[in-house]
Computed example of a mutant assay.
Amino acid sequence: MIVRIMGEGQLDVADGHLAELNSLDDELLAEMEGGDEAGFRRTLGALLEAVRRLGEPLPDDALEPSELILPAPDASLDEVREMLSDDGLIPG
């Protein structure tokens, strides 16, 4: 799946890593609902780092449609809240 981290670029992440990413997404959603700013920052960083670690960066000139768009590392809690669906940032 093609994942875009806003402000950074796109990465190709194998579908087999979706469970690991969903676990972090669930944790992020719980921290947001609880208003845990420190936990939100920590988990957002961990989620983005996992995508960077597990994904293969696409060339800057690649124009692939992103199946998943994640917020920038410095996104606010409110900005991320606006991006959420009922399933969090990552469907499933």
Rank of each mutant, 00 (worst) to 15 (best):
Met83Asp: 11
Gly55Leu: 07
Asp78Trp: 12
Asp60Glu: 10
Val3Asn: 03
Glu8Leu: 05
Val13Ala: 06
Glu20Ser: 08
Asp25His: 11
Pro59Phe: 02
Glu64Phe: 08
Asp74Arg: 00
Val3Leu: 06
Pro71Gln: 10
Glu67Thr: 11
Gly55Asp: 02
Asp26Leu: 15
Ala72Thr: 01
Arg41Tyr: 00
Leu89Gly: 13
Glu33Val: 10
Gly39Leu: 07
Glu27Ser: 09
Asp26Glu: 13
Glu37Lys: 04
Gly7Cys: 10
Glu33Gln: 15
Leu47Glu: 03
Pro73Ile: 02
Asp86Pro: 09
Asp74Lys: 00
His17Asn: 07
Val51Cys: 01
Gly92Glu: 05
Arg42Met: 13
Leu63Val: 04
Leu29Trp: 11
Leu11Pro: 02
Ala30Ile: 14
His17Gly: 01
Ala72Phe: 01
Leu28Phe: 07
Glu64Leu: 11
Leu58Ser: 01
Ile5Thr: 04
Arg52Met: 08
Ser23Trp: 14
Arg41Asp: 00
Arg42Ile: 12
Pro73Arg: 02
Phe40Leu: 00
Ala38Tyr: 03
Pro59Gly: 10
Asp78Thr: 14
Leu70Gln: 11
Met1Asn: 01
Gln10Ile: 12
Leu68Asp: 07
Glu79Cys: 12
Glu49Arg: 12
Ile90Trp: 01
Ala14Glu: 11
Leu24Val: 09
Ala62Thr: 07
Ala72Glu: 02
Leu84Gly: 10
Leu77Val: 02
Ser66Ala: 15
Val3Lys: 05
Asp15Trp: 06
Glu56Thr: 12
Asp12Gln: 12
Leu54Phe: 06
Leu18Thr: 09
Arg53Gly: 01
Asp87Tyr: 07
Asp78Val: 15
Gly88Thr: 14
Ile90Gly: 03
Glu64Thr: 08
Glu27Trp: 04
Ile90His: 01
Met1Ala: 01
Asp87Pro: 06
Pro71Gly: 10
Ser23Val: 15
Arg42Trp: 04
Ile2Asn: 03
Met32Asp: 12
Ser23Gly: 15
Ser23Cys: 14
Gly9Leu: 02
His17Thr: 03
Ile2Met: 07
Pro73Gln: 02
Ala30His: 13
Pro71Trp: 08
Asp12Phe: 14
Gly55Cys: 09
Leu47Asp: 04
Glu67Tyr: 10
Glu49Ile: 03
Val51Trp: 00
Ala38Phe: 03
Val3Glu: 04
Ala14Gln: 08
Asp26Trp: 13
Asp15Tyr: 05
Asp87Ser: 12
Asn22Lys: 15
Ala30Ser: 14
Ala46His: 05
Ala14Trp: 05
Glu8Thr: 00
Glu82Lys: 15
Gly55Asn: 08
Arg52Asn: 06
Gly16Trp: 02
Ile90Lys: 02
Val13Phe: 08
Glu20Val: 08
Asp25Met: 09
Gly92Trp: 02
Leu47Thr: 08
Asp36Cys: 06
